[in-house]
Computed example of a mutant assay.
Amino acid sequence: MQGLLPLREYEPLRDLHRFVEVGGQLTLELGAARVPRPRRGRPGEGLPTGHARSVVNAILEVRTGRRPVSQVQGLVGAQLYAQLGLWRPLRNVRFTVKSLRSCAITPTSYEVGVTATTGTRTHAVMARFELAGSGWRCVFFEIIRLGAR
């Protein structure tokens, strides 16, 4: 049977303070009340595969009319968002993402190739992600219909 480990002392402002000299006296200067949450995606970290898969899946659901365009507004660039609102939905189709491959073009942009299947057909999907101030955003999206010219 394992014993319980003792709890650490409660220090809500650990590493958020420093001493400054004001008028010859050392005064404790407090920093921010909370630690800022790290942003999703930074140059050098790369595009998280799970994030790319979920964004591509959400855009596919928008293209088939199963999801409103407004739900992907924070995930896509402004130009792609406008295009998604103009495209006619693909009716009676449900895509399933089978595989996803990504390739770094620059440290702040990735291109993603996806294999998506419907009931009887397989389609290729291309997407381009760029790192914006709020995280990775999809700026280009295209469903490639195999056999079409």
Rank of each mutant, 00 (worst) to 15 (best):
A52G: 01
T108G: 09
M126V: 15
L26D: 08
R53H: 00
L16A: 12
G41M: 00
M126N: 11
G119L: 07
V93Y: 05
A82V: 05
H123C: 08
A78H: 03
T117Y: 10
H17K: 00
E9P: 12
E9L: 11
G113P: 03
Y81K: 14
L5T: 09
V35F: 02
T106N: 13
T49G: 04
I59F: 03
L30G: 04
Y81H: 14
T120I: 13
R121S: 06
V62W: 15
Y10L: 12
T115W: 08
N92D: 12
V56Q: 00
P48H: 01
R42E: 06
Q79F: 14
L30Q: 02
E9N: 12
H123T: 07
Q25I: 12
C103Q: 10
A52C: 05
T122L: 10
Y110A: 00
L5I: 10
V76P: 00
G85A: 09
E9V: 13
G65D: 10
V72M: 10
G24K: 03
A33V: 14
R91T: 00
Q83M: 13
H51F: 11
V97E: 03
V55Y: 04
L16N: 12
L28R: 13
T106E: 15
L16I: 08
R94T: 15
R34M: 05
S70F: 12
P38V: 11
V76K: 01
L28N: 04
G24P: 02
A58P: 01
G119E: 06
A58K: 07
T108V: 11
P38G: 12
V125T: 15
A104P: 06
T120C: 07
A33Q: 12
V72Y: 11
V22C: 03
S54W: 07
A58Q: 04
R34C: 04
V112A: 04
A52T: 00
V93S: 03
Q71L: 08
P48R: 02
L5C: 10
V62Y: 15
S70W: 05
Q25H: 08
P36L: 04
S109K: 05
R8M: 05
R101Y: 08
P36H: 06
I105K: 08
R88D: 13
R66C: 09
E11G: 05
Q83D: 11
G113M: 13
V56D: 01
R101K: 06
R94C: 14
V69D: 07
L30S: 07
R8W: 09
L7K: 14
V114L: 07
A104G: 01
R94P: 14
R39Q: 08
G113E: 15
S109F: 05
P107T: 07
P48C: 02
P12T: 10
T117D: 06
V35C: 04
N92V: 10
I59V: 14
P38D: 15
T108I: 03
T64V: 09
E29R: 15
V35P: 10
R53D: 01
P68I: 04
